[in-house]
């Protein structure tokens, strides 16, 4: 075949592929949002689910997802900062550093169901925390931590070298240089990366089935103690999240409006991820402007 014809055919095929993908992807988004909005209203977002009849909401599930996210971040942010700082600033070229990097690679590509199994054995059984928010948060930590360590390391590495030199050349210790000079410059990148990683935690389900559990007690939203079993804040109570709820109503649910509930819950999940994405982009730009402009 002559090269000109091949070129024309190839271009046509590429256009077709692009068109196909755009339509599938946009179709998917439109489908989720269109169906979801038919179900979403204030009552749906705030009221508890039903077990047998139609009309249940997703209030506790939404709260559980958010609470689990917050708890996970409380655990992972300090650890992620520490690990990222070590790799960017201290790590020598040796076997320990290689082992840390290999661990990051393994943990971030582990199937989430395997993380769930690990959580079931260690946090639920060995530690004796049972199906609980704490067990769930620890399981989520397992794959959020490597992401965060990477984000922190990359953000620190992108800080201009001269910043570090200037500080050290004034007799300021390495540790203070890291905390007071490098981290503030790296902060926008760290925050953007953390928000994006949060979107992933928010939608995770497989790792939570056997750690945070598939049920939620009847929460009493006027009880904010950390210890009573019906308090929303009690970290030792089981907590079904939004993503787990979508899976459960579809596979073992008995409610007649499973489809509509899953529609609504899916749309809320997608909107949240969308929100995290846009917010991260906007925030990155905003803080960059704050730092550079007067």
């Amino acid at each position: 075949m002559n090269p000109k014809t091949t070129d024309r055919i190839a271009t046509f095929v590429l256009y077709t592929i692009a068109f196909l993908i755009v339509s599938v992807l946009f179709g998917l988004l439109a489908y989720i949002l269109y169906h979801g909005f038919q179900r979403i209203d204030l009552q749906f977002i705030t009221s508890p689910p039903e077990t047998m009849k139609a009309g249940g909401g997703i209030g506790p599930q939404l709260f559980n997802s958010l609470y689990l996210l917050v708890l996970t971040l409380i655990i992972t942010i300090p650890l992620g900062l520490g690990g990222g700082i070590y790799l960017a600033e201290y790590a020598p070229k040796n076997k320990v550093t290689d082992a840390i990097r290999l661990s990051i690679e393994v943990l971030s590509s582990l199937p989430s169901i395997v993380v769930g199994l690990f959580g079931l054995m260690v946090f639920v059984n060995v530690m004796g925390w049972g199906f609980s928010i704490l067990s769930g948060a620890c399981a989520l930590t397992v794959f959020n931590l490597p992401l965060l360590v990477r984000v922190v390391e990359e953000s620190l590495r992108s800080v201009p070298r001269e910043q570090k030199e200037a500080s050290l050349a004034m007799g300021i210790s390495h540790w203070t240089t890291i905390r007071k000079v490098l981290l503030p410059v790296a902060l926008p990148g760290i925050i953007t990366g953390t928000i994006l990683a949060s979107g992933r935690i928010f939608g995770e389900a497989a790792a939570l089935l056997f750690t945070a559990g598939m049920s939620s007690p009847d929460l009493n939203f006027s009880d904010w103690s950390f210890t009573t079993p019906v308090s929303p804040l009690n970290p030792f109570r089981p907590a079904e999240t939004l993503a787990v709820h979508i899976w459960k109503v579809n596979s073992e649910g008995l409610i007649p409006d499973a489809r509509a509930v899953a529609d609504g819950a899916s749309a809320i999940l997608v909107l949240t991820v969308l929100f995290f994405n846009l917010f991260a982009r906007w925030f990155g730009r905003w803080i960059y402007k704050r730092l550079t402009a007067s």
Binding site: P160, E162, Q163, E165, A166, S167, A169, G171, P184
Partner: peptide, 19 residues
């Protein structure tokens, strides 16, 4: 070195003020 660098200051080719 911390004391030394207080006594011998340095300025670079490209201005590098702290953020």
């Amino acid at each position: 070195l911390q004391q030394l660098r207080r006594r011998i200051g340095m300025v670079w080719q490209k201005p590098n003020p702290f953020f």
